[in-house]
Design a protein around this nucleic acid. Structure first.
Length: 801
RNA sequence: GCCCAGAUGGCGGAAUUGGUAGACGCGCCAGACUCAAAAUCUGGUUCCCGCAAGGGAGUGAGGGUUCAAUUCCCUCUCUGGGCACCA
């Protein structure tokens, strides 16, 4: 018998699928909709790597499983084609990105079709197409017009290698998320989105079926903290220093104040005084510190300077010297009350000889900082705290807030770590920010009729740190022609995360150039039912997309708040337990394996390696097991066979459907495949029924689509396998007539017995006593307890004689 | 430092609500076919003792609850991920 010819078969079906309309979607179909979305790739010139396959293969299997259940599945695919990868590739090869994007996406589309996935290419998008970024610009303008976008001069993250600014989310451990270079700070005039306005809404994940870990990561990133602003009057003058604290219970211990070096009041305080020179010097030193030095690692090196001013503690009148300090950030109010109950303050005070006082101790007895090596950060009983003496500090906390509030010296406040989203980029290959400036320098939106506000081509796109399109004559001429002499265009482009924050809506427009998206179609199709992609996007893309979606909702454009109902992250494929990387030289390239075994086998082996969300370890030889299985399956279909044991066969097939259904529901593809293997191993014993071959083919459809179709055809079936759908099982038929169960004596297995599934305890005990090895132990003592769990276990507890 | 996830044979990994640990696959061993090899097929394969029947140990380490623990509780070690001077 001929072995399964994977390549020939797959080529045949891929052609049929591309030419036919089985996989085309009718968005108006009345069947239950299912929006199955995978994070789209950026197009590179390279072949698909194993990560692509691990993402797209199993995701397609999920879509097929939904389609087998009769749902109208929408499974689009497109390209995140603006951005650094495409631009860097263009710089390297000298080919203009707009050209390389065309060739690379065409190549990639071809490869992705060879996975044998049912992508809806008719609804594809490319974020760098003017017909797409026209609407990205429209979204920007909607935010701008509604006060959710603004331009501001601020110290921002700068990547010296990428020569552009980065959003906070793109800085990881002080390094650029993309190129790993160390990020520095620069004062620049940049565009921001007010994502911080949405902090509270973004914290709410109710109704979302997301991994708990991702939700936690977003919550930590947003960083809500409840505290209190306390106002300290200056010794001289009218200024009030407002300090944010989560520990108002330590207010009586405050002995000094620290301010962020960037705080605008610092200049006011030292200008023209004898402290100015020293403060300037220290500030310069701090500004030279990298983010890492100033934050995590620099924790040991406290640095600051006295401003020559004093504030007054409103609760006890103490005179508090005011300092700048490197550890004080522009978070909260940028001013911090400092005391001996905080480790950082404690270290700073020791370095600069500032007095310290405790107000909390374990039992309320008076303790002195001089007797301690570090801060007292624990809880306890208050002392030297006016009317709050003797109280537990945590119980006193709300009362102190109330006291401050009543005396006008403070109020409860909530702070978030989430900062506004910086979207300007000083790079060429991105959507131009659709803003122009009048001769006075005021920003104006480019009216919608002039969208797309196209990216000029008459520039050198190599990054210099200045925006490349600043040198475009065409852009300036265009601006002056439309708006008048002296008007100037914005020359920064948008963060590509902006492009990808709404693409799932654009897919549903079917490329309509007249509007961003179709309200009616969206009403039916959104939110996305299943979103599959890497966990690295937890605090970037997934946060931005939720924000943009919520903003569009609040502006009345769409009627759903959350874009992604269910989210799943695929795991990582490793080689010998290690991350694959070019530098380690342990990268597995899919091509040769796909060439040799076919796409079904390759996809199935990836799914077989481990649970989808956990990933797995690639083994060059392991894939042969799947190849053998596919061949075995094909031969089983081609061989005439008959059932040898009717009862056992029926039970086995119903059990198989049940197990595969349950494991498919949970994306446990590894055990789905194992179940089918087990069934095939059973056939020599129980036989195989001709009619049931069709059932097996249907079960294989999601995980090995080419093979399934070929078998379907071979078995003489007409029409799409999807019309037959996913097989159903009868629960009553999944139960074996007899069960084998272990017999335990004092917790140790001493034998096993075969019983009718509903055997009584007496029958079970009788059967057990017939087992010689069981009896051997039973006679050694007196049975004091029998545990019988039908179908599971029979246990004896005996007391030795 | 804080938070989360995990640790099971030579390897990847299975194990409904606590109920015969090691499914399935790789690898390995033996056999069949072959002049031979590959491919394929059959059997075996957690470790230790034993010809076998069987016994002992065993799911990162140590304790606990239970007739029974990979599963529940406590302590610890290691690995991966995230956050990190956020007052």
């Amino acid at each position: 018998m001929e072995s399964y010819q994977a390549r020939k078969v797959e080529e045949k079906w891929q052609k049929k699928w591309l030419d036919g309309d089985v996989y085309k979607v009718n968005l108006d179909d009345s069947a239950e909709k299912y929006y199955n979305l995978v994070m789209f790739p950026y197009p590179s010139g390279d072949r698909l790597h194993i990560g692509h396959w691990y993402n797209y293969g199993p995701a397609d299997s999920w879509g097929r499983y939904m389609k087998m259940q009769g749902k109208n599945v929408f499974q689009p695919m497109g390209y995140d084609s603006f951005g650094l990868p495409a631009e860097n590739y263009a710089i390297k090869t000298g080919v203009h990105p707009s050209e390389s994007i065309e060739t690379n996406t065409a190549k990639m589309t071809d490869q992705m079709s060879k996975i044998g996935a049912m992508w809806n290419w008719e609804q594809s998008v490319k974020t760098s197409d003017p017909s797409y970024y026209k609407w990205t610009q429209w979204v920007f303008l909607e935010l701008f017009k509604n006060d959710l976008a603004y331009k501001k001069k601020a110290p921002v993250n700068w990547c010296p290698s990428c020569k552009t600014v980065l959003a906070n989310e793109q800085v990881q451990n002080g390094s650029c998320e993309r190129c790993k270079s160390e990020v520095t700070k620069r004062d620049l005039n940049q565009w921001f989105f007010k994502i911080s306005d949405y902090a509270e809404k973004l914290l709410d994940h109710d109704g979302l079926d997301w991994p708990a870990k991702t939700v936690t990561m977003q919550k930590n990133w947003i960083g809500r903290s409840e505290g209190c602003n306390i106002h300290f009057p200056m010794e001289e003058g009218e200024d009030l220093l407002s300090c944010y604290t989560t520990r108002p219970d330590t207010i009586y211990s405050v002995t000094f104040i620290v301010m962020a070096p960037e705080h605008p009041l610092v200049d006011e305080f030292v200008k023209g005084t004898k402290y100015e020179a020293e403060v300037e010097k220290v500030r310069k030193e701090i500004s030279k510190q990298s983010i890492i030095e100033r934050t995590s690692e620099g924790g040991k090196n406290k640095l600051g300077a006295f401003l020559g001013k004093y504030a007054i503690n409103p609760v006890n009148g103490r005179k508090l010297p005011v300092y700048i300090a490197n550890f004080a950030l522009m978070y909260g109010t940028g001013i911090v009350m400092a005391d001996a109950h905080d480790q950082r303050d404690f270290e700073f005070a020791n370095k600069y000889d500032i007095p310290l006082e405790f107000v909390i101790s374990e039992d309320g007895s008076v303790i002195k900082p001089e007797d301690f090596k570090g801060a007292y950060t624990g809880d306890g009983i208050l002392f030297n705290s006016g009317g709050f003496n003797g109280m537990n500090n945590r119980e006193a906390l709300p009362k102190i807030v109330e006291f401050l509030q009543n005396s006008g010296n403070g109020e409860a406040t909530i702070n978030y770590k989430l900062r506004d989203w910086l979207i300007s980029r000083q790079r060429y290959w991105g959507a131009p920010i659709p803003v122009v400036y009048d001769p006075e320098g005021n920003a104006h939106p480019v009216p919608e009729e002039h969208l797309p506000w196209v990216l000029p081509t008459d520039v050198d796109f190599k990054p210099t740190g200045e925006s490349p399109i600043a040198n475009s004559k065409e852009l300036v001429e265009r601006t002056e022609k439309i708006f008048g002499k002296g008007w100037r265009p914005e020359v920064d482009t948008m963060d590509t995360f902006m492009c990808s924050s709404w693409y799932y809506l654009r897919y549903l427009s079917s490329g309509d150039e007249g509007k961003a998206f179709d309200k009616e179609v969206m009403k039916k199709w959104m939110p996305v039912d299943m979103y599959i992609g890497g966990p690295e996007h937890a605090c970037m893309h997934l946060l931005y997309a939720r924000f943009v979606n919520m903003a569009l909702h609040d502006l009345g454009h769409i009627d759903f708040k959350e874009p992604f109902k269910k989210l799943v992250h695929q795991g990582m494929v490793t080689k010998d337990g290690a991350k694959m990387s070019k530098s380690k030289g342990n990268v597995v390239s899919p091509d040769s394996f796909v060439e040799k075994y076919g796409s079904d086998v390759f996809r199935m082996y990836l799914m077989f390696m481990g649970p989808f969300t956990a990933g797995g370890d690639w083994n060059d030889k392991g894939i042969t097991g799947i190849a053998r299985f596919v061949d075995k399956f094909w031969k089983m279909v081609c061989t005439e066979n008959e059932v040898k044991d009717e009862k056992a066969f029926i039970t086995a097939i119903h059990k198989l459907i049940k197990k595969m259904t349950r494991d498919m529901d949970n994306m446990h593809y590894n055990t789905v495949i194992a179940a089918m293997m087990e069934f095939l191993n059973l056939i020599p014993k129980i036989g195989m029924d001709e009619g049931s071959k069709k059932v097996l083919a249907r079960l294989m459809e999601p995980i090995a689509p080419h093979l399934a179709e070929e078998c379907w055809e071979k078995l003489g079936c007409k029409g799409s396998i999807f019309e037959a759908g996913w097989p159903e099982y009868d629960e009553a038929l999944t139960v074996d007539a007899t069960v084998r169960l272990g017999v335990q004596i004092n917790g140790k297995v001493r034998g096993d017995i075969e019983l009718a599934k509903d055997a009584s305890e007496d029958e079970a005990v009788a059967a057990a006593k017939a087992v010689e090895n069981v009896m051997k132990y039973l006679v050694e003592g007196e049975i004091i307890k029998v545990i019988y769990v039908p179908g599971r276990i029979l246990g004896f507890v005996i007391k030795p004689n």
